[in-house]
Simulated scan of single mutants.
Amino acid sequence: MSDTSNPTSPAGPFSQAERDAVYRAIETRRDVRSQFLPDPIDPDTLNRLLRAAHHAPSVGLMQPWNFLLVRDPAIKSQVAAAFTRANTEAAALFPENRRALYSSLKLAGIEQAPLNLLITCDRTRGGKVGLGRTHAPDMDLYSTVCAVQNLWLAARAEGIGVGWVSILRDTDLRTIFALPDHIVPVAYLCLGYVVELYDEPELQAKGWAKRLPLEELVFVDRWGATGDVNA
């Protein structure tokens, strides 16, 4: 007799069309920096994106994330200024033969995107002892990154571009948004509708880096041991 107190659903595969859609979202997802349209994201779509993020896997079901929506141009301007300072510092860290290319890349759409989104991790959520965190305390941070990915893939399906602005100091974000000490800024994202996307990652298209061959990254049973993945 089935246990009706714990309802379940079939665990079989999706239809072929559904599987194709999932893999298409994964493979055509892009980090968008300069193609944003000014049109605001409609509320229903935004709620779908936030629900997708909130349905991310989280260790111990801790759900450590919060979603801070940023629409105020004055606040965006502060973040953009913080980015400019950090980006100037970053450019000087690269070898001289890479600096010109680095400086030519547009790495943020903070003021162009109609919506910015700061996704944070509450490191106190779930208490001092959390299921799954007793020996891996950073699982709350990893879980929050899963929420970022969920939102990004849902945005791709909705025709919305997302750009992750990582060239920012935590201290600047903490000051601008008055974050409490136990809140960690994980991802500062730019969101907006886009007309077109690069056929390949933009940094690959512009010669900064290339996607590594998968076969060079897969080991079997122990580090560095190659073998038949399909065995």
Rank of each mutant, 00 (worst) to 15 (best):
G227D: 03
K210W: 02
L197Y: 14
L217R: 14
Q204R: 05
R211D: 04
T226M: 03
L197A: 07
E215G: 02
R211N: 07
L191N: 05
V184P: 00
A225P: 09
L203V: 13
P213H: 11
V194F: 06
Y198L: 08
L189N: 10
F219W: 15
G207I: 04
G224C: 07
G192Y: 06
E200C: 00
G207F: 06
Y198S: 14
Y198F: 14
L203E: 03
K206E: 11
E202N: 10
F219K: 09
V220M: 10
Y193A: 12
E196N: 15
K210Q: 13
A225Q: 14
D199F: 02
V218S: 09
E200M: 05
V186H: 01
Y193H: 14
L203R: 02
P201W: 07
G227Y: 01
R222P: 10
L212Y: 11
G224F: 05
V229N: 06
G224S: 07
G192E: 01
P201R: 04
W223Q: 05
F219R: 10
A187L: 11
L189V: 08
G227N: 06
W223E: 02
W223S: 03
P185M: 09
V220G: 02
V220Y: 10
L214N: 11
L203D: 00
C190D: 11
V229H: 13
E215Q: 12
D221K: 10
V195S: 15
G227K: 04
V218K: 07
G207E: 04
